[in-house]
């Protein structure tokens, strides 16, 4: 898989709600080659503050455009959110190893997508590419933090929701919601924080369900050089930015 570094023009920068934003770049080479689960590494400042790029997963591609959804949480995203339509940003992508679309689908299993918080971003891209209507389970802190619900429904997916505070849908963790919705023959795709993905891997192992999980990790380079984002697997340490971010749950050692 070839990667590209380019000065990408911002085509849209729109607020979804609160601190959640949607941004589109013109990046033809990346759009053409991108797979769900892959990410772009964005340099938000030409200065040294922040110094490093920030990896953000692809939310979707269309024609020559790539889309991301992000939450303004720190120094880098506070700069990113101030970038206007028409400005250019230095981005690298499509990086990493995305979801395997073929294997699980071929077995005719029920496709279940499990998103925790911002984990909806790459799973939206995945749902588009899977093309079969999936069951999407979205977990968030409160109903205010829920994203992409309508978009998944538009694709024909059925959506079930959990919130930690019970402000909408099932009250509790999305992993509990998953336990309540397991079917005899299903396949899991998940993205979220590590503790959530660990529980999903446990569930997958317990019921012998194929599962792919997309890990989030701080990265210094994003291109496999620094060895700062490794994860333990049955085949030794792997780089989240290269061999990941998507791994088969069964291959990971938690």
């Amino acid at each position: 898989m070839k990667n590209f570094q380019l000065k990408a023009k911002i085509l849209a920068q729109t607020k979804i709600k609160d601190n959640y934003w949607h941004c589109e770049f013109s990046a033809p080479q990346i759009a053409k080659n991108a797979l769900p689960g892959q990410f772009i590494n964005i340099r938000v400042s030409a200065n040294f503050d922040p110094l490093l790029r920030r990896p953000i997963s692809l939310h979707g591609v269309s024609a020559a455009k790539v889309k991301i959804v992000y939450e303004v949480v720190g120094k880098a995203t506070e700069i990113l959110v101030r970038k206007k339509k028409g400005e250019f940003l230095d981005i690298i992508g499509p990086l990493g190893n995305g979801f395997d679309l073929g294997m699980q689908k071929a077995e005719g299993r029920r496709q279940i997508l499990v998103a925790g918080g911002m984990g909806v971003a790459p799973l939206m891209f995945l749902a588009e590419k899977l093309k079969v209507p999936s069951l999407v389970l979205i977990g968030a802190k409160t109903k205010k933090d829920l994203l992409c619900v309508q978009e998944f429904k538009k694709l024909g997916c059925s959506v079930k929701i959990s919130t930690d505070d019970g402000s909408l849908g099932f009250k509790g963790r999305v992993t509990e919601l998953l336990r309540n919705n397991l079917t005899k023959s299903c396949a899991l795709y998940a993205c979220g924080l590590k503790p959530m993905l660990k529980v999903i891997s446990d569930i997958a192992n317990e019921y012998n369900i194929p599962a792919q999980v997309s890990l989030e990790e701080h990265m210094s380079c994003g291109i496999g050089a620094c060895l700062g984002c490794v994860v333990k697997t049955k085949e030794g340490l792997k780089r989240v930015c290269q061999e990941g971010p998507v791994f088969k749950a069964q291959d990971l050692i938690w």
Partner: peptide
């Protein structure tokens, strides 16, 4: 050599820390 446990890097003011441990 397996190197050091995670987290191994973090950003600092105009710099970064690493302790990869020669993986």
């Amino acid at each position: 050599r397996k190197g050091n446990p995670m987290p191994r890097t973090c950003e600092t003011a105009a710099g970064m820390l690493n302790s990869i441990g020669l993986e």
